[in-house]
Design a binder for these strands. Structure first.
Lengths: 230, 230
DNA sequence: TCTTTTGGTTGATAAAGATCAAGCAATCTA
DNA sequence: TAGATTGCTTGATCTTTATCAACCAAAAGA
């Protein structure tokens, strides 16, 4: 556990408002570890031992059943994952693997559970964080059910651009096959849709995305804060 | 607000462990109301004013975008809904309407937010409840992404039977069109799939479901606690 | 009781998306 | 740098699911 990580972790909404003493004891039990690319950090069904914080790299959360696999989320720095399993002391619902070499902070779930029972400010932060996670999944599921695959891709691009201050061009932060799976389609389907989206104001060349016609894209996306986020 | 409701509400996991004083003040601000069938209780995007508790009847949570509509959940007694929007003081992500004549308890969101900051036991209950809601949506989304429509229907039947103590026959608690939408398909698709599922151990006659061959159904469903619940 | 309404079913057809196979190009590695 | 690997793309085809329209039956209302 490196001292230089502490300010960054402390700055996260989840840890921002807790008592310094609680934060210190929690961090005291935590440790950092670096993992190579492609390593399975968590297997779905395993007991929830640690809250994970991604400091560097990126982590895919994915689900599998009957030989099928689906990307549920990709976590980038600085972000946490599987808080819900930790607080309920129940098995993980998703597996996790590193998408690149990653540095992860591991916070023992048992200490977490003790801490939010002792520090009311932290409890409030956990409540707020979990409510936010819940709402994020609901929004994603709404997108899956209400939009077709072309619209989902367009909406994802629109959102990415918006998060970068409406930048007209950016590089994909994940490989296309994970994006495809996250958006609930096959890589082939994504590939074909990308080509057809040139007519709707997005051009994709390799991993570079260029919004060529923002108005046209927006007409297709019909952005909705209750799906795409504020 | 009827006194006879209090024990039932108090028995809910969310309210079970809070201090009596907190519960009393919360219930003091709450009030009960009866609504006719088909009434829109909540419109998505509205500010979160009340935590809702269904005492009688049933309520559909649904989402809409660009003229499309999709059932996200159906809440039966005794169940709560839109806790997340309340604790974050943010707009509802889903609309809600009564599916039949229903009696609902309305607990002001502002009082709720005050209470879980003052009563640590209640805060822990809210944490646990929200984590449970989050995990329920994740499980449902996993089902949507990993299973095809036939499998989703079969899994839903299997789960319903399991919740009723592996009863071989039960009556659908919702109209088929809502079930179809909840499971992410059209009513026509559901209707056709139901017929084809006779070959897999489920027979449906009107609103009556009969599990004719549990083993066969289970072979199709491949039940997984990480999707179908424990 | 007789209509009217509404939810459900069925059939025909269309569209969306998945699958399989082959080819390509960028990246990694020896 | 050459070869191998890997992810992406493209084409052909098949499956799944949606759409549209008609019809039926149960339930609600006059």
């Amino acid at each position: 556990m490196h001292a230089k990580d502490l300010p960054e972790i402390r700055h996260l909404p989840l840890f921002r408002d807790m008592r310094q003493a609680s934060f210190d004891t929690l961090m005291d039990k935590a440790y950092a570890q670096s993992f190579p690319m492609g390593l399975e950090l968590i297997r779905q069904g395993d007991p929830a031992d640690f809250l994970h914080v991604v400091m560097e790299g990126s982590v895919e959360l994915y689900a599998h059943w009957a030989g099928h696999e689906s990307t549920m989320a990709v976590v980038h720095p600085v972000g946490t994952f599987i808080l819900a399993a930790c607080v309920r002391d129940q098995p993980y619902l998703m597996s996790a693997r590193t998408l690149e070499r990653s540095r992860i902070i591991l916070i023992p779930a048992s200490d977490l559970r003790v801490t939010f029972r002792q520090d009311p400010d932290f409890a409030v932060s956990v409540v707020t964080e979990l409510a936010g996670c819940y709402r994020a999944v609901i929004r994603h599921t709404k997108g899956l059910k209400l939009r077709n695959s072309r619209e989902r891709i367009a909406a994802w691009f629109w959102r990415q651009a918006a998060q970068r201050g409406n930048l007209a061009s950016f590089v994909l932060p994940v490989e296309k096959r994970f994006l495809a799976s996250y958006l609930g389609m096959t890589p082939e389907n994504l590939s074909r849709s990308l080509k057809s989206l040139e007519a709707d104001g997005v051009k994709v060349d390799g991993s570079r995305v260029i919004i060529t016609d923002r108005a046209r894209l927006e007409a297709l996306v019909q952005p909705d804060p209750l799906i795409d986020g504020a």
